[in-house]
Amino acid sequence: MNTISPVLTVHSKPLTIGDADWVRYALVALTLTIIGVFLILPLATVLIEAFAKGWGAYASSLTHPDTLAAIKLTLLTAAITVPLTTVFGVSAAWAIARFEFRGKSLLITLIDLPFSVSPVIAGLIYVLIFGAQGWFGPWFSEHNFKVIFAVPGIVLATLFVTFPFVARELIPLMQEIGHEEEEAALSLGASGWQTFFKITLPNIKWGLLYGVLLCNARAMGEFGAVSVVSGHIRGLTNTLPLHIEVSYNEYDFVGAFASASLLAGLAVVTLVVKTFLEWKQKQDLKASRKAADSH
């Protein structure tokens, strides 16, 4: 039975109104050219340069102790900042989506601050506060604790630039989902933690993962803020992005591009996972909207 009623013809593409074919093709071509020149070509260059002297040179520059130290430091920074940002993001989103309080819009604006402040300034702030000439610098040096030009400074600077990611992702999501399921769980006798882990978390998990992913990508790729506080000490305070810069400035192109290929790889993986998470989240929201509208 393959009768298709003529009224139900499905158009594979939406019918455009007014735009001539050549406009469409010109716009598509322009977009593709821009993407090719500014995104694909540089990415290809990274790989070409990284393998310019063969697989051996690529591998040996990645296994160089300084590179390994940079990778380790980058992973460590991410391992500290991402969980902190996640906890902060969930609590901030919870507070903003669930409660009415004075200064709420100010808080939302403040959460966005790191997006609007140049990362270099973010780094500088920490130098001014914790540096040798800064407010707390003398106290820290007295107690033999280094913040600036050491790992704590790098973590602090990274925290500053990454802390909106999870909150920004969760606030609209939690506002959309609403409070009723949590109230239902509480009325059934669940404790606050039970409600959070059994009801809230499953509902926001895709959005949360999405925020964590973006946060992680930024934590590993951050250059400006970290550059100011790191001091560029080889093998000690160089993260991967800083290591790339140092190598490049020393004409170690293979080393620089080999490290860059790692970050580029991270970007591609992030992109793929991000697309998947976005799709998953949309599915979930669709289902929940369907569940909310009874007819």
Partner: peptide, 29 residues
Amino acid sequence: SVKNRHIGFVFQHYALFRHMTVFDNIAFG
């Protein structure tokens, strides 16, 4: 708190736990 009042509340839009089956919803309490 609502948790300690031992009431049953049915919400206007039901507020069923969307990620649980019907069985798990009822078993939740």
